[in-house]
Design a protein around this nucleic acid. Structure first.
Lengths: 240, 240
DNA sequence: CATTGTAATTGATATGGATCAAGGCTGGTA
DNA sequence: TACCAGCCTTGATCCATATCAATTACAATG
């Protein structure tokens, strides 16, 4: 892979001008601090569906911010199966789980063509010491990740398949809204297989439930396009 | 509750002399740094089975270290049920999930008489800026928490009930070993109900599986006492 | 435009674990 | 020492979801 490969071409955008700054790590930084963070960000690269951002066992300690597109993180079980741990949308940080070890303990793969910012941890730790608010924001993001995982534990331990799928759609809906995108009409970048894996269900079950939600006029589903028709009913299903 | 109540009586021990220091937050600190951490620790208190360490919605931002005994953390679902998120043994830190918000987003309850160190987050953040290695250790613990949660997601999404119970016993076994206690013979401080809740199973299922493991001579179970007879078979069951 | 491979749907059947319903053990208490 | 309450175990039955087996619908490719 050469330096001119599009995958590693630095994009012109900086944190300072990024429209996602308010969702991302630099939230609330001063102008001068933006610049320091910019200096740390190694590369803004474009990845394509199926490309790995990082792999379990990788020793390059970095975290990644999604600028556009989407990625999934996953672990491989002892028996070699994949377990999807999460999906990440623009403005979200990927790779926080591996801060302690020198290696990543899960992998991350692009779901579609996506633009990614890579931040080497060693550099990040350095400027965190200089910019306390960045330090604080990093902690905030990490503990938000834990909260999110706890919600997921609850979903897997207690919710039935209808509730799981409804909760999943609502989570995406809410996150799109946060990004100024339509919360009622969006495309799924992940396959039914990925959704099923993430939710601890069989593909067939996910498919059947989406069809049922369609029949019940709660959502309109056409392949990967989702239109939430009755948000209230969906909320009701999610928590019933 | 008066100041002389045993629950709030400060214990004499300090981080400097605590035998758990190598498992706990102060791992790898210098002598002088130990003292600073000691100053921050508000109280070493004794709690009894059923006592709350902190409650969802509490606004006292603290994290807690278990010195002896054990506690569980749990969230309450929309429908008012409890979801056990984890069990914490001596040397383990509780309350890391709520670092970002001003309030705790889960609750913690003692499973037995336990000795607990409370560390107010504001003070901790301050001395973290002065002691980088403490900062680093805190990050390490948090991201270990995330890794642990990921293992749990995998367990709930993919493992059957035998595997879940076997994995649970092995996790306790390994953690006891780390503390210099017997890894093959220990007491469960939590009820079958708590175990079932944590593992996403019915109490009856947990009970039946423990009985089965007994019949198969893998473990000897007498009420809350566990003796691992065939560690290898247990490993096998956990991942089969 | 036809071809082919992959993803998604749909239907039929099987089953692991939940639920319902008793009964038994144990540790605390008067 | 007997009683009680909570925890745990055991048995019978049911059901939600997995699994197996086609079929259909795209999207990519030449």
């Amino acid at each position: 892979m050469t330096e001119t490969n599009v995958s590693f071409r630095a994009l012109s955008a900086s944190c300072k001008t990024c429209s996602l700054a308010e969702l991302c790590l630099p939230r609330g930084l001063q102008a001068e601090e933006f610049q320091r963070l910019d200096d740390v960000i190694k590369a803004r690269r474009v990845v394509h569906a199926g490309d790995l951002l990082f792999k379990e066992g990788n020793d390059n300690r970095s975290i990644y911010a999604v600028r556009s597109g989407s990625v999934k993180t996953f672990a491989i079980t002892e028996s070699g199966e994949e377990q999807v741990l999460g999906f990440h949308l623009p403005g979200e940080i990927v790779g926080l789980a591996g801060l302690d070890e020198s290696i990543h303990n899960c992998s991350s793969k692009a779901l579609e063509t996506s633009s990614i910012c890579e931040m080497p941890l060693d550099d990040l730790e350095d400027i965190c010491l200089q910019i306390p608010s960045l330090q604080k924001q990093l902690l905030k993001l990490i503990s938000r990740e834990i909260s999110q995982d706890h919600k997921m534990l609850l979903l897997l331990a207690k919710k039935n398949s209808d509730q799981r799928v409804a909760t999943f759609l609502l989570s995406l809906s809410g996150r799109f809204k946060l990004r100024g995108l339509s919360s009622e009409s969006f495309m799924l970048s992940m396959s039914r297989q990925d959704i099923a894996n993430y939710l601890g269900l069989a593909v067939e079950t996910v498919s059947r439930i989406l069809t049922k939600f369609g029949d019940d006029n709660i959502v309109e589903v056409t392949r990967r396009s989702i239109q939430i028709v009755d948000h209230d009913r969906l909320l009701e299903v999610a928590s019933t």
